[in-house]
Amino acid sequence: MRNTARWAAALGLTAAAVCGPLIGAAVAAPGAAPSSLYAPSALVLTTGHGNDAATATPERAVTLSCAPTASGTHPAAAQACAELRGAGGDFADLKPAPDVWCTKLYDPVVVTVQGVWQGKRVSYAATFGNSCMRDAMGGGVFNF
């Protein structure tokens, strides 16, 4: 978690900027009607070169929200949300695209995800052998 805070600070992100829309629901009075029929889903995805999240320097970050509709700065938000729904929101269950061939050149790329998926806190980090392998995973979630 310490490394994620460092990544967020490096990107100029704050909890209020990432989860601002979620705060109203979190501090609502008991018995108050929810402000939305959808469970909150707001994610920040980062990528950078390195061997692990502790040592990788973030090079790019995008936001992704999937409820009620796909939105955010992710270039393929609708596709990414569909793939996440298909994996039940579990990033470890995303499958690589079947028709992508990548070289075995080792140039490690790290992806991190922080936020909320359907009302549950998410924290995920993975290292891929190179950017082709990262982009092939899940088809579009990490391709940004």
Rank of each mutant, 00 (worst) to 15 (best):
E83S: 15
C19L: 13
S35W: 03
A17W: 02
V44D: 00
A92H: 07
T57Q: 14
L13F: 08
C81H: 05
T47N: 06
D135E: 07
G89S: 04
P75D: 03
D107F: 10
A87H: 03
G86I: 09
L84D: 10
L84N: 11
F142K: 00
S71F: 00
A29W: 08
V100I: 10
N51F: 03
S123H: 10
R6F: 01
T46C: 12
A32L: 12
T103Y: 09
A97T: 11
T69L: 13
A15D: 13
G24N: 13
A87E: 01
G48I: 08
D99Y: 12
A97C: 07
K120F: 02
C81S: 04
T127G: 01
T103H: 01
S131Q: 15
R85F: 06
T55Y: 09
L13D: 08
P40N: 06
C81T: 04
H49N: 01
H74V: 03
R6H: 08
V109T: 04
G140V: 00
Y38S: 07
G20T: 06
F142A: 01
H49P: 00
A54E: 11
R134C: 02
Q118L: 10
T63K: 13
P40V: 04
R6G: 04
P40A: 06
A136D: 08
R121W: 11
L64T: 10
S123N: 13
C66Y: 01
K104L: 13
